[in-house]
Computed example of a mutant assay.
Amino acid sequence: DFKKTAVTFQFLNAILMLVTCIDCSSAIHTRNDLTEIEKEVCLSTAKFEDFVTEFLNRTFQMIDTLSTEMSDAVVLNHETNSEDQEASQELTSMISGIVQQCSKKIFQMIREKITNFLAASSFSPKISRLLNGLVRAILKGNPEETLKYLLPQTCERIEKILNHSETTILSDHKGDPELTWSLTLFSELVRARGDALIIYKPMILSVFHRCIHIIHKESYEAVANAAKNLLKTLSYVYPLEYRLTVENIEEPFTDFLPIRAWGQHVEFDKLNVQFHIPNEDEVDFACEFVE
């Protein structure tokens, strides 16, 4: 039920936007200024990792179920697509909120679980929005690490499919499900921050050069989306993060205790927003791609 799922994601997102997902339980041993309530809260934060793990497991189960159901369906109506989009947007927002305000340990766990799930099999394009939401979220949290574990493998997978398939795969209107899924994932990965993509320029251009003439509708749409996403991330100015606090949120908690930032507002004139501004290499990459 996409409506109920979207509402659940929305509820969790509203809460997780206001807290940092960090295990602060060690603070009770390093600080002597904690109230009894703060000690209880610090101890309860040890459950964050278990909560996120369970949430991801249930999300993966939902995606697996939807993938099977939708692959058997002949037609998906407009209402279903609209509900699917709403659920995927809420999922993206929720996971983004977690990964941008969590400890390195929890982020690595999230990244590992998502990358392992994506690598395990191919998925129906019909549920690509939900999967893209997961990828988009961890890309925002740590583009360098996410790309390292996903982009080379995805490009290699695409090249392997093309190398081991018949020469008609590019001109086949029926397409190849695995290739379509890989291109969909590729299109999402090139949303990553422009400067993080530079080192992968040769493999990115290689995929475009080989797939630009594909005629299968969904595969071609994935390639077109990849081109749009790549040019935007290389040439646009955009905020880099949306964290609740600019303080160091990692242990030890001697100077700053993350739970004390929960739900706190920031004065407008004290915002220190960091923007991505295209550098020379990114502009050159964009120009080379267009040419």
Rank of each mutant, 00 (worst) to 15 (best):
I249M: 09
T245W: 01
V266G: 03
E241S: 15
E241H: 15
G263K: 05
F253N: 06
V266T: 10
D269P: 03
V246Y: 09
W262G: 00
D255Q: 12
N248L: 05
Y242H: 15
R243D: 14
F256C: 03
L244K: 03
R260P: 03
Q274F: 05
E267F: 08
E247F: 01
L244N: 05
L244F: 02
F268G: 09
Q274L: 10
E241C: 14
F256G: 02
G263W: 04
E267S: 07
E267P: 01
R243I: 10
V266P: 01
P278M: 04
R260D: 05
E247M: 03
V246N: 14
Y242Q: 14
P258V: 00
E247Q: 09
L244V: 10
V246T: 14
G263Q: 08
E247W: 00
F268M: 09
F268I: 12
E247D: 13
V266Q: 06
F253A: 06
Y242P: 14
T245Q: 01
P258F: 00
Y242D: 13
D269A: 00
Q274G: 06
D255M: 06
Q274M: 09
I277H: 11
V246I: 11
E241V: 14
L257T: 02
F275T: 12
I249C: 08
N272L: 06
T245F: 00
I277Y: 14
N272V: 08
E251I: 11
V273M: 12
E241Q: 14
I277S: 12
E241P: 15
H276P: 04
N248Y: 04
D269T: 04
P258A: 02
D255E: 10
V273E: 13
D255A: 09
N272K: 02
F253G: 06
R243W: 11
V266E: 07
Y242V: 14
Q264R: 07
P258D: 05
R260S: 03
Q274S: 12
I249G: 05
L257C: 02
E241K: 15
Q264G: 05
F253Q: 06
F256V: 03
G263V: 05
Q274W: 04
K270Y: 13
E250C: 02
I277N: 13
V273D: 12
H265K: 11
F268N: 13
I277Q: 12
I249T: 10
P258Q: 01
D255G: 08
E241Y: 13
D269M: 00
D269G: 00
E247A: 07
G263L: 06
